[in-house]
Structure formats: structure tokens, C-alpha cells
């Protein structure tokens, strides 16, 4: 009964995955399919000579770091508020989750317009309040492009982080809180002794999701900046796409894919193992 599913995942996930390792040792292009074996040359080039690749790795780290640092505290705070004030909380929850169901391309376009130098609301607002000197082409300025993208990222995902936190907090049986109240714990003690230990596990999970998510990040950056200005906003996936399909170096693209797989899958699995064993001990 699991055979049809097995055929699908083997053909479309594992077969390409294995082939990726093989392809990463070759140099060729889509026009002239003569494959030249180059061994590990793609990898030495990547780590020794490709400044943009290294920059894209740094951007992935920055993306994961800022997502964790900003979304997790805000998400936890909002989740606590939503659960406390159910009536207005429900409507508020519905609103902040909304961007997550809209396609990333649509969201990227909307925010490209928000950041537009001429009619973009951010510059219009700055000029209206007398801060016109701060107005700039946010996505075209090498100093602000990455920060502008991060702003959009947080706008999309804050609702998701909040939702995951709410689901975790709801999974606590209410009897625990009742007995805590009977034991005379105050609201703050309750948060510290019951909610916080549970949240610790969630925070680790959310950080893992942020790391894995940063390596899966593509749409937003491709639509908003295509990695520019001056290749300063590339992440590993957009650089892979550029190398493989725009510069027609699929072997090099496969090699970048190998590093994405190792960084995201292997590191995340290790993190899960380490945190699981630490949390269950």
C-alpha cells in the first residue's frame, strides 16, 4: 500500500539527490553536453575563489539569526497575549497569519512597491513627516537592500511563529495551571515554572526551522533584488540558480546544491539529535 508513494519519493527526491553528488564532479553546459570530469574542483572554486558564494553563506546565517532574534520573542509575546484576551486575540491572530497564505511572489511584489523610490509608501511617509532626507531606493541601495528584505521576511513569518507558539501553549493540559493556582503560584511564577520550560523546547524547534528555512529561501530574494545590488543580497539558492541556469554551469550548480544539502539537512539532523537527547535527559 505504500508502494505508489515510495515510487514517487524515490524517483523525484532520492534519485535526483544521489545524482546531484555525481554531477557535482563535472563541468559542462546545457548547450554542449560534453561532461568533463573535474573531481573536487567545483568545491575548491566555491570556497576559495567565489566571493559571492561566501557572501551568500553569510547572508543565510544573517537571515537565520535575525529571524530567530526578532520573530521568536515577538511571536511568544503575541501568542501569550492572544491566549489571554481571546476575543480580540482571535481577530488579531487571523490578521497576522494572513500574509502566510499569500504567494511569496505576490508578497514580494507588494513590498517592492512599498520600497519603490518614487511612489513607495515608506518614502512617501518619510517625506510627509519631514524625514525626507532618509528616503532612498531601499532595495537598490547596497546599505539597505538586505535589511529591507529582512523586514518583509519578518512581516510574512511573524504569524507563523505566533501560531506555532500558540499550538504549543495550548497543548499544555489546563489541569497543570489549575494545580499551580491551588499551590498558590502567581502569574509570573506560573509563566516561569510551567510555560517557560515548555517554551524552551519550542524555541529550539523554531530556531531549527529558521536555519532550515534560510537554506530554502529563494522566491523573495529572486523577485525583489535578483541578488543585487552588486550581488550583495544573494543567498545560496539564488546563487545556485544563477550559476546553473543563467551562467549555464549546471555542474557548479549541483556542487552548490551539495553544500546546501549538507548544511541544511545534516546540520539540522545533528541539532535535532543533540537537543532531543539534552531535552529528554
Amino acid at each position: 500500500m505504500s508502494l505508489p508513494a515510495l515510487v514517487f519519493v524515490i524517483l523525484f527526491i532520492y534519485y535526483p539527490l544521489v545524482q546531484m553528488f555525481y554531477l557535482s564532479a563535472f563541468r559542462w553546459n546545457f548547450v554542449n553536453p560534453n561532461m568533463v570530469f573535474v573531481g573536487l574542483e567545483n568545491f575548491t572554486r566555491m570556497f576559495l575563489n567565489d566571493q559571492v558564494y561566501l557572501r551568500s553563506l553569510l547572508n543565510v546565517v544573517l537571515l537565520a539569526g535575525q529571524s530567530s532574534a526578532i520573530q521568536i520573542p515577538i511571536g511568544v509575546a503575541l501568542a501569550t497575549i492572544i491566549l489571554r484576551y481571546r476575543r480580540i486575540g482571535g481577530l488579531f491572530w487571523a490578521i497576522i497569519f494572513l500574509p502566510y497564505v499569500i504567494s511569496s511572489v505576490a508578497v514580494s511584489l507588494i513590498w517592492t512597491w512599498m520600497y519603490n523610490p518614487y511612489f513607495g509608501s515608506i518614502n512617501v511617509f518619510l517625506r510627509a513627516v519631514g524625514l525626507g532626507f532618509l528616503a532612498r531606493p531601499w532595495l537598490g541601495d547596497i546599505n539597505t537592500a538586505l535589511i529591507a528584505i529582512f523586514g518583509t521576511v519578518n512581516w510574512i513569518y511573524i504569524g507563523l511563529t505566533t501560531t506555532m507558539t500558540i499550538a504549543t501553549l495550548k497543548s499544555i493540559p489546563p489541569s497543570i495551571f489549575e494545580s499551580a493556582r491551588i499551590d498558590g503560584l502567581s502569574g509570573f511564577q506560573e509563566f516561569r515554572k510551567i510555560t517557560l520550560p515548555l517554551l524552551k523546547e519550542l524555541i529550539v524547534v523554531l530556531m531549527i526551522i529558521d536555519i532550515a528555512g534560510a537554506f530554502k529561501f529563494f522566491d523573495l530574494i529572486w523577485v525583489m533584488t535578483q541578488g543585487g545590488p552588486s550581488d550583495s543580497t544573494h543567498v545560496t539558492t539564488t546563487w545556485l540558480y544563477r550559476a546553473a541556469f543563467r551562467s549555464s554551469e549546471p555542474g557548479y550548480g549541483a556542487a552548490i546544491g551539495v553544500t546546501i544539502f549538507i548544511f541544511s539537512f545534516v546540520i539540522v539532523q545533528l541539532l535535532i539529535k543533540i537537543t532531543r537527547s539534552r531535552l529528554t535527559r
Binding site: Y14, L17, M20, L23, K216, F218, I260, F261, Q269
Partner: peptide
């Protein structure tokens, strides 16, 4: 497969 980024295997 849930933990693998499809972006990595675009070429193959």
C-alpha cells in the same frame, strides 16, 4: 524528504 530542500537538487 520533508527535511530536504528541493532547491538543492534543481539541476538533477
Amino acid at each position: 524528504g520533508f527535511f530536504i530542500a528541493p532547491h538543492a537538487v534543481l539541476v538533477p
